[in-house]
């Protein structure tokens, strides 16, 4: 089981400190897990969050997430 309370706290802390790398890591993992479980909508939702923070932070991982979202028809 995912410990959502713990995740929430992590996300909030990363938001507060502007720690984009951590935000991306958390959201990307959530997104990929959802996709792996066949939940496209939830997966795309989390990957979008990851993508935006990767873009904002100028993180190279943005490329990879972008590719996934484009493949899902959810980004251009």
């Amino acid at each position: 089981m995912i410990d959502y309370d713990h995740l929430n706290a992590q996300v909030l802390a990363a938001h507060d400190s502007g720690d984009n790398a951590t935000l991306v890591r958390i959201y990307q993992k959530l997104g990929n897990d959802e996709l792996a479980n066949g939940h496209e909508l939830e997966g795309a939702y989390f990957l979008t969050q990851a993508y935006v923070y990767a873009l904002e932070g100028g993180l190279p991982v943005a490329k990879e997430i972008h590719k996934t979202l484009v493949a899902l028809g959810r980004e251009e």
């Binding site: 496209e40 909508l41 939830e42 997966g43 795309a44 939702y45 990957l47 979008t48 969050q49 993508y51 935006v52 990767a54 873009l55 904002e56 932070g57 100028g58 993180l59 943005a62 979202l69 959810r74 980004e75 251009e76």
Partner: peptide, 30 residues
Amino acid sequence: GTIRCPYHSWCYGLDGALRSTPHVGGPGQN
């Protein structure tokens, strides 16, 4: 990286171009 609007997180490049519009077509649809 990009300029992220603090409201709904539309993202703009340093060249002013609109780079992303998260959830603009509904959740997870950008």
